[in-house]
Computed example of a mutant assay.
Amino acid sequence: MATLSDAWGAIRACLGTLYFHDIKQVVGLAGLDTTRIAHIDEKLMSDGTSKRPTKGALLAGIDQVYAEMGEDRRRRFLAIAAEEIVKQKPEVRVDLEEYLGRLGWQWVDNALIPVSLFDTADLAELPEEPRADLLKAAQRFRDGDLSGTISAACGAVDAATSSIYEAAGLGDPEDASFQERCNCALKARGIIVETESQLDALGWDVADTKPFAQNLKGALNQGAYVMQTLRAKMGDVHGTKPILKPLVFDSLKWAEILVRTLTSPT
């Protein structure tokens, strides 16, 4: 599983391509206490004889301060540092993505998230609004905000169903439960019927397509129920109720499945 230390290794490598002063500026903007590295200055000492500290010495000093950070502060530091590096030197983005990818992380829409959460290619095919909510959910999951993750994941599905409700003239989606609006949106788009038709075209027997379509519909319905229940029991509770992290991860995957199914061309 990807760890924050892995991500720091990739970001550190790209940080080292910046100028000495810019490195300090980036880590300062990312929340590192720059007073801890103030003594590592590239200017000559007053006697003019001492060696200038190298970028290696500066990065080693940053390593030490980073190692003393708490988990939450590290998450914020890494995300902001990666973003600021790309702002300072846009051409390094390709290398950053490659390094992060090899270590189990990805850089999507200026968000640093573990590869295990979403596939970049799949996200790129989704409409802007639900995609933004899915990325928000992934960032919250990465940052340990589990209740916020559930809320954002459900928000992604809300965005997809609201768009379908408006296009199909189904009324106010807020009048229906989460599960009901998912089912209505699926029906309005003819997802199950179209899937069954496509399987028929592939040469599947009716004896196979019918139960498959029924089970697909049931699986999506059950996924919507799971998300609806998690939203009610674990969403936006801010530590007031127990939360099971594996179920939060499941809500992310169900959100991606539902959004992709609801928004894919039929």
Rank of each mutant, 00 (worst) to 15 (best):
T3S: 15
R12F: 06
L15E: 01
L18W: 01
Y19G: 11
F20P: 00
H21G: 07
K24Y: 03
Q25S: 11
L29N: 06
L29K: 11
D33N: 14
D33I: 03
T35C: 07
H39Q: 12
M45A: 15
S46Q: 10
R52W: 00
G61D: 10
I62T: 05
Q64M: 14
Y66R: 07
E68S: 15
E68N: 14
F77T: 03
A82G: 10
A82D: 08
E84G: 02
K87S: 09
Q88L: 07
P90S: 08
P90W: 07
E97T: 06
E97V: 04
Y99D: 12
V108G: 00
D109N: 12
A111K: 07
L112K: 00
V115Y: 01
F118G: 00
T120Y: 01
D122T: 13
L123E: 03
A124W: 04
A124D: 13
E125M: 08
E125F: 00
E125T: 12
L135F: 08
L135S: 02
K136Q: 15
A137S: 12
Q139S: 13
R142V: 08
D143A: 10
I150P: 00
S151P: 00
S151A: 15
A152Q: 06
A153Q: 08
A156F: 05
A156Q: 02
V157S: 04
D158N: 15
A159N: 08
S162P: 01
S163F: 01
A168I: 04
L170H: 05
D175R: 15
S177L: 03
S177N: 07
N183A: 14
C184H: 11
A188W: 07
R189G: 10
I192C: 05
V193E: 14
V193R: 11
T195D: 06
S197E: 13
A201M: 10
K210S: 12
P211L: 09
K217S: 14
G218E: 12
G218R: 11
L220N: 07
Q222P: 02
A224I: 04
Y225R: 13
V226N: 08
L230Y: 06
K233R: 14
K233E: 15
M234R: 02
H238D: 11
G239R: 03
K241T: 02
P242Q: 07
L244A: 13
V248E: 00
L252F: 03
K253M: 12
E256I: 05
V259Q: 05
T263F: 06
